[in-house]
């Protein structure tokens, strides 16, 4: 469960009001016009944007003032999730130890996770030698290894084609169910939300609206959502 209590999120000169609860585990899609603050919401959850007022709870823990590394959160960005000079195995291993000194047990866990995300045989490749989909798989593998209950996707598959995007969403769905994750994903495609989300959350005009069940969100959208979706 994620709860924003009368929170004001700040990112540069921008501020966003949030007062809502996202129930977990499950997948919650975040939609809204560009510039509305969707990414700010994720950045605040991960600890990269400050919370000016109110507080943020993840589970039973108040994380308002916690530094990023101590939050129960992993993030996938659209780009630059990997370090170009490290191979796949090392990029994944960073999830266990930033200094990359893994023991034998940890090394075999890395191999397991690579196997699990369909990256077997690629552990010695550099990111430049991978496709866009494979690169995001590596980032997912690292998130799995970190084993944090909340996973944030900041338009993580926005640069992929429709087929590959669906494949990655399916992988996220599988992983989320297996690991009991709470997933928040920013997306520009309402169909992504339809495909895998349990809830949808709308962000517009500096305000985060409380999440609605996906079917309800699309069947009887509030006025602002209908305008955004282009429905009459």
């Amino acid at each position: 469960m994620i709860r924003f209590d009368g929170a004001v999120l700040r990112n540069g000169g921008f501020s966003l009001r949030a007062d809502l609860t996202v129930l977990g585990p499950g997948i919650c899609a975040i939609v809204g016009p560009s510039g509305a603050g969707k990414s700010t919401l994720l950045l605040a959850l991960a600890g990269f944007a400050s919370i000016g007022a109110g507080r943020l709870m993840i589970g039973e823990q108040d994380v308002t003032a916690l530094p990023p590394a101590q939050r129960p959160v992993s993030v996938l960005f659209q780009d630059h999730n990997l370090f170009a000079h490290l191979d796949v195995a090392a990029n994944v291993s960073l999830g266990l130890r930033p200094d990359l000194r893994l023991n034998a047990a940890q090394k075999s866990r890395v191999q397991q996770v690579l196997q699990h995300t369909g990256l077997q045989g690629l552990s010695a490749r550099k990111p430049a030698m991978l496709s866009g989909g494979q690169q995001q798989r590596v980032a997912i593998a690292r998130a799995l290894l970190r084993d944090r209950p909340v996973l944030l996707l900041d338009e993580a598959f926005g640069a992929l084609g429709p087929g590959l995007r669906r494949e990655m969403l399916t992988l996220v769905r599988t992983v989320a169910v297996e690991q009991n994750l709470t997933v928040l994903m920013v997306t520009h495609e309402p169909e992504d939300a339809r495909a895998i989300a349990d809830h949808v959350l709308f962000v517009a005009q500096g305000q985060v609206h409380p999440p609605l069940p996906t079917a309800e969100f699309f069947a009887a959208p509030p006025r602002a959502v209908a305008d955004y979706l282009g429905l009459d």
Partner: peptide, 22 residues
């Protein structure tokens, strides 16, 4: 990329790792 700095924060990089990896 700002993403790398944020990843470093999330993964708990210290000054040494930040210098070596980023």
């Amino acid at each position: 990329p700002p993403e790398h700095l944020r990843l470093g924060q999330q993964l708990g990089f210290g000054p040494v790792e930040r210098f070596r990896l980023i």
